[in-house]
Design a protein around this nucleic acid. Structure first.
Lengths: 403, 403
DNA sequence: CTTAATAAGTCAAGTGTCTTGACTTATTAC
DNA sequence: GTAATAAGTCAAGACACTTGACTTATTAAG
């Protein structure tokens, strides 16, 4: 009592932690493998048939899984496969970008059911908060209009915005992202929506999306190199998103490159911001995305020049990511127009030599991911789904068990 | 049966997993906080007093913890603190380096009890295996001579050697490390010693050592930048060593830097190998370590020049590590002579700006770690201790439970 | 067509580990 | 001297997984 240094320890666990873990393992197995019978699940998870039966029964009661028609597989009683029920859970994803905010509602398997966007006025949070809350409220009511029980099955609101978070400002920020980064966003949104709110940066959101429904599906070690207005890496390590101490892990856009005797952040050389500057266009133009997609498709010279320069830096970024993270694969994704991302991928190859070059590889070193302005919002929504249903160390600990 | 795609799933868990986790949590709490009473442990781990009592009793029976004298802390019954018993477990650590192999025996709290080294003959594994097995056997018998029950309490043999593992060879390898990397080392050592054998690269071993007894003690996110014959980063993420897909995560020495229009791996610019080349000395000279330490202490000009050049690259490496991993701190350690490491640290500052610059930091961005030729062997030994006693997700899963 | 082999899945009792709430013990504060 | 407080124990209870026998459904073989 007098001696009041805080005691640091990890949390213990109990039956509920066990049970919570096993439920998550079942859901994960069904997500990765598609429909499986109870016997399949028992073998794959190393649990007994009986335990699997009990858990599946419970999940079925909860509306998270459902049986399909029995299938005959040779001798023995036919097996009844179970699959995830998409309508078993929903989440809202919110992207806050420089001049626009987008929101989506997704279901348990990551399908987007509702989407909407709104322009963000200048002035940061003081003017934007209401726009955001209205957008989220609109999404929720539209979701309620198309599916039953949506509010009851809503597991949370995931927010994605450009990082880094909590860092002494750089100053060169015309779009007030710094104001958003400092604003008590989580508290405001929690109060304004009554939902569980989580936050990640946009590259992390893209990675979360790729893991749920994209190229990183079922992978335990993958890095998404995200090219958007800025550039960042979303890290899937040991099957979970890695956030670092302050949620800023993967902010590769802030990495300083040295060339010509001076240093520049990667972000100033290979990102949509640098492209916009290169083309001397207004980033706030709502038709910019389509216009650049068209230019990229037509093989515009000015775009080409930027692509070739950016590809050099991206090639090196991929090399560095492979060297430091040793992932199963690297995924190039972005909020950039798809045609531009495709050109970038073409221009990036061949990759630099690295430890990723090894015999017996099954996955390509570099894969294209989603290139879609909505992928960040999708990833934002995937965050709460993942937190609620994916197997995670934190989920077995007593301090994470509610109910 | 006909449809035989393998089903991928994470393993489930049961009571034993729960119990195993809670035991580890207790041990971890005592390791991080020093002696704690049962009541302290109950509060810190969120388990009940009764559960803690049962586990502590069991750990005491197993010889892993012991009680200290009761302490009065105001009103109420005095509490009885428990602490780890160093002799509760032992592990052997083995470092395989280019021209030398070192082995140590450590106890549960990471104290080195026995150490020995031997020269490695040219020719790689075909000539070296016997040397290594003899060295390990010698360490084991010396350990048995100074403590009771050492063989029964030996949890494993940890091996550390330069990476990367399993990568198509670079060719420029006069010391046959590539032959070692391809050799079925784990199988050979398992067969030759009867112990559980684990393998990590030398930077990872250094990080493991720093986490058990060094600057990363009790930290969940820390990166050790290891300067040895090569250079690498050992990654502690979420409280565990991160290995990547193939155990090669953190091999920053292989990162290509671009300057003067051509690319060089970091390792060729800032490592002992580069220093030896700079000084035109023979790396196999057994007195080299002491000589260089002396030169560094005396402020030798040639060393200075190398230090200043290497510091530029290391400063940038630290910047990159901070940017990509967002750790609580970066630790500079090495098998380099201590005086050299101290000079390097002095020359590296001030650090480059990065996301690590934030208000409210409590830990320095860069800290000195162990600079000792034995630290890698210590880290190698820390590996089995950590695997056996630290709380880890993998340890709760059914497929990791023996007994 | 019958029977054996095989596999999915259920039933009911058993086991291990944590939890609960009352109780004992030891110390300080008033 | 008595009340308050805190550590720690005791014994019963709850929960979730396990065990082994059993039922059901299908194919392979004779």
């Amino acid at each position: 009592m007098n001696d009041s240094r805080p005691i640091r320890a990890k949390s213990g666990t109990n039956h509920e932690g066990t049970s919570a873990h096993n439920r998550r393992v079942m859901i994960d197995a069904l997500r990765v493998n598609g429909a499986l019978s109870r016997a399949d699940l028992a073998r794959a998870t190393r649990l007994t048939k009986q335990t699997v039966s009990n858990i599946i029964e419970e999940l079925e009661r909860d509306g998270l899984v459902t049986s399909q028609e029995a299938v005959r597989r040779g001798r023995g009683q036919p097996s009844t496969p179970y699959r995830l029920v998409p309508e078993g859970a929903f989440a809202i994803g919110l992207q806050i970008d420089r001049h626009v905010t987008r929101a989506v509602a997704v279901d348990l398997v990551g399908s987007v059911l509702v989407r909407d966007e709104a322009g963000l006025p200048h002035g940061g949070p003081s003017n934007g908060t209401k726009v955001i809350l209205d957008l989220v409220a609109g999404i929720r009511s539209k979701l309620a209009g198309i599916v039953q029980q949506s509010e009851k099955r809503l597991v949370g609101l995931g927010v994605a915005m450009p990082g880094p978070f909590g860092v002494a400002g750089s100053g060169d920020d015309p779009w007030m992202m710094e104001a958003w980064q400092k604003f008590p966003l989580l508290e405001t949104l929690t109060a304004g929506t009554g939902l569980d709110v989580g936050l990640q940066n946009d590259a992390a959101a893209a990675a979360t999306a790729e893991r749920m429904v994209g190229a990183a599906h079922g992978l335990d070690h993958a890095v998404c190199l995200f090219v958007g207005y800025g550039i960042g890496a979303g890290l899937i390590l040991n099957g979970e998103l890695y956030r670092g101490t302050n949620g800023n892990a993967g902010e590769i856009g802030m990495a300083l490159l040295f060339a010509d005797g001076k240093s520049t952040p990667l972000e100033h050389r290979a990102s949509l911001a640098s492209l916009y500057q290169h083309l001397s266009v207004d980033p706030a133009d709502p038709h910019l995305h389509a216009r650049i997609n068209g230019l990229a498709l037509r093989g515009d010279q000015s775009i080409h020049a930027w692509v070739d320069a950016a590809a050099v830096d991206l090639r090196w970024s991929i090399h560095l990511i492979e060297t430091l993270f040793d992932p199963q694969t690297v995924i190039l994704c972005g909020s950039a127009p798809e045609a531009l991302v495709n050109r970038l991928i073409a221009a990036i190859g061949p990759l630099l030599p690295s430890i990723a070059e090894r015999r017996g590889r099954t996955l390509p070193r570099l894969q294209p991911g989603m290139a879609d302005p909505w992928s960040v919002a999708l990833g934002a929504a995937a965050g709460p789904i993942s937190r609620a249903f994916d197997p995670r160390f934190a989920a077995i600990l007593k301090d994470s068990l509610q109910s």
